[in-house]
Design a protein around this nucleic acid. Structure first.
Lengths: 224, 224
DNA sequence: ACCTGAACACCGTTCAAGT
DNA sequence: ACCTGAACACCGTTCAAGT
């Protein structure tokens, strides 16, 4: 006969740990697209208040979730040949990581100081590339802020599009085109013209285009 | 003795109209920084459900509020000499208009088709300047989307900073600098270096810098 | 027919009561 | 000392009941 279960196993569920709570919270956010303390308590099989034993409030938990969400982000090595290509790749990877974890883009955008180790590693790698591009400290930091603000703002905006229960992005594009096609072309000719171009304005393309605008100017300023 | 008050005046408050509701709702959002249907009902001196007689739901009311919020936006004339200066001015004016009406930036970012007259006028004027810059339809539309996404995302992010009940922006800058100063400089040298530059990274400067990056690239693409 | 407000299904967090 | 859950102060919206 096996030994009696340890105290940890005697209870019907394992005891809560901060890391375990964070993991379940990220899973919950990924499943539902949103996240509440009460839903988390239920998924943990515990009282909604049990989490408050490990985190001061929802904000503190979200801070921990953000850093955990960025753990799977792998920055390119600092010595890679082309810093501009590195910045482009990191921008796309950052967007992808935020999209994998709904609600985290809002944390980035809120400009709370985020000093988790994975968050800092991402910032460090991005600043490194900007310096390697040849920018001075002031431009590197302003460029860093511009990229972070754009990426987090973009993901916050696209999250509800992906979460639509009808066709998601394609339904959204169709809706936009229908709306702009109905605009009176004599009063708003440019807007009416925009309607025809709408189907190719996918989120991927919009994101890539804007990132390239930002990076192109940064590269030019570095060259001067 | 004056005539008996009209039916409209006999009641203690004037009857609700869509335009009146929108005005009170914008006032409420400006005062409190946020906005709820229940608080609106109270401010109107009516049942929370009274608004539902004029608007299908909160979304419909917010759509009307956005267009009203953009009514005070004056686009520069289409014939102004320098389209780039026009775009810069419009970007700053758009940000200012959104900041005057908390919560409206979120509506812009959400990419619901916004087809109110003032919203369309803003879009029409912006696209006009981009075409005058020399861009083709595809670039003009992508550039338009990049500007709108950046501006709305930026305002969504800065709103909570301005709404802080301690020093607002200056308290936020101090907090950011303190956090980044505490980072281990051996592991994160670039981030530590960023701390020293933090005080000059005001929201105005961040915004201006990023807008100029976007516009600079757009102007270059137009020239080619 | 029109309007009202009770009720439903939520939310984050406090705090008193229990073990 | 630790944990629980009732309670507080919210939220948007449905729907039955009243005039």
């Amino acid at each position: 006969m096996p030994a009696a279960p340890s105290t940890a196993r005697r209870r019907s569920r394992p005891p809560l740990t901060p890391a375990g709570i964070v993991q379940v919270a990220l899973d919950l956010a990924a499943e539902r697209g949103d996240f509440s303390m009460r839903a988390l308590g239920q998924k943990l099989g515990a009282d909604p208040m049990a989490v408050y034993r490990h985190f001061a409030d929802k904000n503190a938990l979200l801070d921990a979730m953000l850093d955990a969400a960025l753990a799977d982000f792998q920055p390119p090595g600092p010595d890679a040949a082309d810093p501009l290509a590195g910045l482009r790749r990191m921008s796309h990877d950052f967007r992808a990581a935020l999209l994998r974890h709904p609600g985290m883009a809002e944390r980035v955008a809120m400009n709370r100081p985020a000093t988790g180790p994975h968050t800092l590693e991402l910032a460090e790698a991005t600043l490194g590339k900007l310096f390697r591009l040849g920018l001075g400290a002031s431009d590197a930091i302003s460029g860093f802020e511009a990229l972070v603000q754009f990426i987090s703002g973009f993901v916050r905006a696209e999250e509800p599009v992906h979460a639509r229960d009808d066709g998601g992005e394609s339904a959204w594009l169709a809706e936009m085109q229908a709306a702009y096609s109905a605009v009176p072309a004599d009063r708003f000719p440019h807007v009416a013209r925009m309607a025809a171009q709408m189907p190719e304005q996918t989120l991927d393309r919009q994101f890539e285009y804007a990132i390239d605008l930002l990076l192109e100017s940064l590269a030019r300023r570095a060259r001067k």
